[in-house]
């Protein structure tokens, strides 16, 4: 017998919009879906982790198709959403290669972006009623 799929709440917003919001502002998708405690913690924790990465002289990579590994790092960095562009606009994330904490900073930046990608997937699951 086929497994019945959980239905989303009738008044729930479009999953696409939830995902876009969750990507742009970490935790915002959960906040919109009524998971205020989870959303609030994510709203503080992920930008803080990103900020620590910038403080540690990490570098924000861009998308450069000629360099696939750099592109992967850039895509992971962009996972944090609007913060990536704000940091770029403020000339943060230039990266200081000679700093002892440079690689640590990169790791914090990349992992913060990837964790936000997981948060987006979780928000999608909630929006479509899977969770």
């Amino acid at each position: 017998m086929a497994k019945r799929r959980a239905q989303p709440p009738p008044e729930s917003p479009s999953p696409v919009i939830v995902c876009a919001l969750a990507w742009a502002i970490p935790g915002a998708g959960h906040l919109w879906l009524g998971r205020s405690r989870t959303g609030g913690i994510l709203l503080v924790a992920l930008p803080l982790m990103y900020g620590v990465g910038l403080w540690l002289d990490g570098q924000l990579f861009g998308v450069d198709l000629a360099q696939p590994l750099t592109t992967l790092s850039g895509l992971a960095d962009i996972g944090i959403g609007v913060l990536y562009f704000v940091a770029g606009f403020l000339d943060l994330g230039e990266g200081r290669v000679v700093a002892a904490t440079y690689e640590y900073g990169n790791t914090f930046l990349v992992v913060a972006g990837l964790l936000n990608a997981l948060v987006v997937i979780d928000a999608y699951d909630i929006a479509v009623g899977r969770k």
Binding site: T38, I41, L42, A45, L46, L48, M49, V52, T107, F108, V111, A112, L115, L118, V119, D122
Partner: peptide, 12 residues
């Protein structure tokens, strides 16, 4: 690093 990662995974 461990604090941040475990916090997010625990929430999700």
């Amino acid at each position: 690093f461990g604090v941040f990662v475990s916090l997010v995974f625990a929430l999700l």
